[in-house]
Simulated assay, not measured.
Amino acid sequence: MEPLKPMPPMQPLDFSPAWWPEGLGQPASSGGQNDIHYAFFPDARRLAIKQGGKVTLYDTGSHRISGVSQRRGADHSPTFTDQFGEVSLAELKQVG
């Protein structure tokens, strides 16, 4: 039996090509479900949403987004998980 070999160094996550506006940097959390992708930028207090090829920005205020879920049925709007529980897009101010 051979001795264990050291693992190669971990590489940083590669988000390229970035679909969000360039000035936001790297997201603290990101993901997607179905046709909706999100990226959260806590320093900028921004949530970027990509749906149907269109990117929209939201001001997150004091919310720290950590996950997303999508409702079933006619209303397919995403609901986000933050440090307080759940927050919907309707509760966030659209800024771009």
Rank of each mutant, 00 (worst) to 15 (best):
Y38Q: 06
V68T: 09
L57K: 07
S66T: 15
T81N: 02
F15G: 03
S29K: 07
P27K: 08
E22Y: 03
R72E: 14
S30D: 04
L24W: 07
H76Y: 01
R45P: 00
P9Y: 03
D59G: 05
F84M: 03
S16D: 13
W19T: 02
D35K: 04
G85H: 09
L24T: 07
G25S: 07
F84N: 13
P3H: 08
G96C: 01
P12Q: 04
I36Y: 02
P27R: 09
F80V: 05
F41Q: 06
G23H: 14
A90D: 11
H37L: 11
L4S: 12
G61I: 03
G31R: 11
I65D: 06
K93F: 00
A90K: 15
Q83A: 12
P9K: 09
D75A: 10
I36T: 15
D82Q: 05
L89K: 02
G31S: 08
G31F: 04
P21N: 07
E22A: 15
Q83P: 01
P8F: 02
S66C: 10
G67S: 15
H63P: 00
K50L: 14
D75Y: 01
W19E: 01
Q51N: 09
I49G: 04
R64K: 10
R72T: 12
S88P: 00
Q83H: 13
G73R: 01
D82T: 06
G52T: 03
A28Q: 12
Q83F: 03
P78D: 11
L92P: 04
V68G: 02
E22R: 11
S88K: 14
K54R: 15
R45I: 00
V95L: 02
G25L: 07
G53P: 02
S62N: 12
A18F: 00
R72C: 00
L13F: 10
R71D: 09
G25P: 02
S88A: 15
T79I: 15
T81W: 03
P9W: 02
W20E: 06
A18I: 02
D43G: 07
Y38T: 06
P8R: 11
G73D: 11
G23V: 01
S77D: 14
P27Y: 09
S69C: 13
I49T: 07
L89W: 08
M10W: 01
P3A: 12
F40L: 02
V55R: 02
H76T: 13
D14C: 12
L13R: 14
P12R: 11
L47W: 09
P9T: 07
F84I: 01
I36D: 09
F80C: 03
P17F: 04
F80M: 05
R46Q: 13
V87F: 04
R72A: 13
W20Y: 08
V87K: 02
P21T: 09
K50F: 00
R46P: 00
E86Q: 14
A39T: 05
